[in-house]
Design a protein around this nucleic acid. Sequence first.
DNA 1: TGCTAAACGGAACATTGTTCCGTATAAAAC
DNA 2: GTTTTATACGGAACAATGTTCCGTTTAGCA
Lengths: 192, 192
Amino acid sequence: MDVKPAGKERRVRADAQRNLDALLQAAKAVFVTSGVDAPVREVAEKAGVGIGTLYRHFPQRADLIAAVFRREIDACADAAAVLAAEHPPFEALALWMQRYAVFVATKKGLAPALHSGDTAFCTLRAHFEERVRPAIKMLLDAAVAAGAVRPDVDPDDLIIAVSSLGSSGYTDKPGRVARIVALLADGLRAHP
Amino acid sequence: MDVKPAGKERRVRADAQRNLDALLQAAKAVFVTSGVDAPVREVAEKAGVGIGTLYRHFPQRADLIAAVFRREIDACADAAAVLAAEHPPFEALALWMQRYAVFVATKKGLAPALHSGDTAFCTLRAHFEERVRPAIKMLLDAAVAAGAVRPDVDPDDLIIAVSSLGSSGYTDKPGRVARIVALLADGLRAHP
DNA sequence: TGCTAAACGGAACATTGTTCCGTATAAAAC
DNA sequence: GTTTTATACGGAACAATGTTCCGTTTAGCA
C-alpha cells in the first residue's frame, strides 16, 4: 500500500473530456428549451451518456447548472464596463439593468433556483455575487458621483430587484419586464 | 337505471365536512412552516386522513393551495379600499404595495408557483387577478387623477412587479423588500 | 334495521434526483 | 505489444413525492 507520488498526475482521460463536453453542450440546449428544471436524464440521454457518467462529472444537479451558466454570468458582468465607457453614468446603469434582466429572464428557472436557499446552489450563487456585485456597484457609484442617482441605494437591493423581476416568468406581454425595470430605474434618480 | 331527481340533493356527509375542515387547517399550518412546496402527505397526516381523502377534496395540489389562500387574497384586496379612505392617493398606493409585498413574501413559494405557468394554478391565478387587479387599479387611477403619479403605468405591471419582488425569497436582511418596493413607488411619481 | 351512494384509506404507479457497484477502457509501465 | 491499474462508464436500484385506483367503510335515508 504505497502512497501515490504527489507529482506527475495522470492525464485526464480523453473519453472523460469528450463526455464532459457533450454533457455541457446537451445541458445548454436542454435548459434553453425546457428550463433548468429539466430532468437530468434528459440531459444525459441527449449527450449520449449514462446517468452515472453525468453524476460523476456533476455530483449535483446544481453543479451542472452552475457549469453551464458560469460563462454567461461572466459575460453579463463584463458588459458593465463596456456600457460605462460608452454611455453617461445614469444611462449606463439603466442599460445594464435591462441587460441583466434579459439575461435572467432567458434562463428560465435560474433565479428562483438561485434564491431558493438550497445549499446546493451556494457555489453558483457565490460566483454570481462575486462577479455581478462589483459590476453593479461600479455603475451605481459612478451614477451617484455624477449626481444622477440618489446616494442611499444599496447595490444588493438592485441586484435582487432586477433578478426578481427578470425571473418572474411573466412573458405574457412583450416589454413588460423592460417597462418595470425602467420604472425602477426612474425611482433611483436623484431628486433635486 | 333511473335518473336521480334533481331536487332534494343528499346533504353533505358530516365526516366529509369534518375532513375538509381538518385538511384546510392542517394545510394552512404546514404551509406556514414548510412553504407551499410541502409534501401533500404531510398535510394529510397532520389532518389525520388518508391521501385518498385529500385527493378527493382537492384533485390537485394546486387546488389545496388555492383553497387555503383564497381568503387571504380577498383580505389583501379589501385592504385597498380602507387605505384609499384613510390616506392621500399616493400614500395609499405606496402603502398598499407594501402590504401586498408582505402578503406575497409570507407565502413562501406561492408566487413562483403562481407564475410557473403550470396550468394547475389557473384557478388561483384567475381569482388572484380578479380580486387584486381591481384593487390596484382603483388606487392607481386615484393617484393619477390627483396628479401624483404618471399616467402611463399599466396596473398589471405593478401587480407583477410587486409580486415578483415579494416572492423573491430574499429575507436575508430585514427591510430589503420594503426598500425596493419604496424605490419602485418613487419611480411612479409624476415628474413636474 | 337494511340499503346505497358517498367517502375513506392506503397500496400502487409514475416521475425525478441520487447512489452504488460491476464492467469496460485509456493511459502508463514494462 | 502486452500487462497493469486507476479511472470512467452505464444503468439498475433507492428515495421522495405527486397522483390514481379500487376494495372497504359508513353516514344518511327509508
